[in-house]
């Protein structure tokens, strides 16, 4: 691996946005293929971050800074990657249930997933089942993440899953649910594919389901 990529990984770990953006350009100028910069620089760096986050050595805000840095690099690479036949990033649609305006947990999960290399389509708060279904269809999403903080909005998760089935999409999309009152038992009961109790396990679960 080139020195530039090695340094890029360190800067990424430290959440240095400008440095990572510059290093990405430098690596390209040195003739490193975009695909290699992505896998050996940016994604490899984020893997380190993920490892230390899981071990409790890194905090969420630090992971998010690293994710920001990764995206700064990715923005440089994106036009080149689009030209090549590199596979596109898997898309994940997220949102909170109809009637639920609590979104900080959902936002956090979105950012962490983005940091892990997924493309996030965030529908925001109080999203209707119809809107979820429509977006999954039009975006060709690999996964749908639904969040609820209120027990009163949890039933809408079930309604949404039923709507996916009716639309003939259920077999093409994985469904993950979360939020303070949501449990693994509830997820199973409503026919979701997975439940994640926190942002870190949401990333792990997403990886195991669709990566």
């Amino acid at each position: 691996m080139s020195n530039t990529l090695e340094q890029m990984q360190k800067d990424l770990y430290n959440g240095q946005v400008d440095e990572v953006r510059a290093a990405t350009q430098k690596a390209l100028d040195e003739g490193t293929p975009a695909q290699e910069i992505l896998s050996d620089g940016l994604i490899a760096g984020m893997d380190e971050v993920g490892k230390d986050f899981k071990a409790g050595d890194l905090f969420i805000p630090e992971v998010l800074m690293s994710a920001k840095a990764m995206h700064a690099g990715l923005d440089v690479l994106r036009p080149l990657l689009a030209e090549s036949d590199a596979p596109a990033l898997s898309k994940i649609v997220i949102g909170t249930m109809a009637g639920d305006l609590h979104d900080i947990g959902k936002n956090l999960v979105g950012m962490m997933l983005e940091g892990a290399g997924f493309e996030i389509i965030d529908l925001g708060t109080s999203v209707s089942p119809e809107k979820f279904v429509e977006t999954v269809r039009t975006e060709g999403a690999a996964m749908l993440g639904m969040s609820a903080l209120l027990t009163t909005t949890m039933p809408a998760m079930k309604t949404t899953i039923e709507a996916l089935t009716e639309a003939g999409l259920r077999d093409h999309v994985k469904v993950i649910v979360g939020g303070a009152p949501v449990t693994a038992g509830f997820a199973k009961e409503i026919g979701a594919d997975a439940y994640a109790p926190d942002a870190a396990s949401a990333v792990d679960t997403a990886r195991s389901l669709i990566a």
Binding site: G15, F59, I60, P61, E62, L64, M65, A67, K68, I104, N107, L108, M111, P197, D198
Partner: peptide, 24 residues
């Protein structure tokens, strides 16, 4: 969440009791 101020001051501002369980 992702503001630089958060990342900058996320350490040293709080005490985390080692014995407490605060998970799910």
């Amino acid at each position: 969440l992702a503001d630089e101020h958060t990342a900058r001051f996320c350490r040293g501002e709080r005490y985390t009791p080692a014995l407490f369980y605060r998970g799910s």
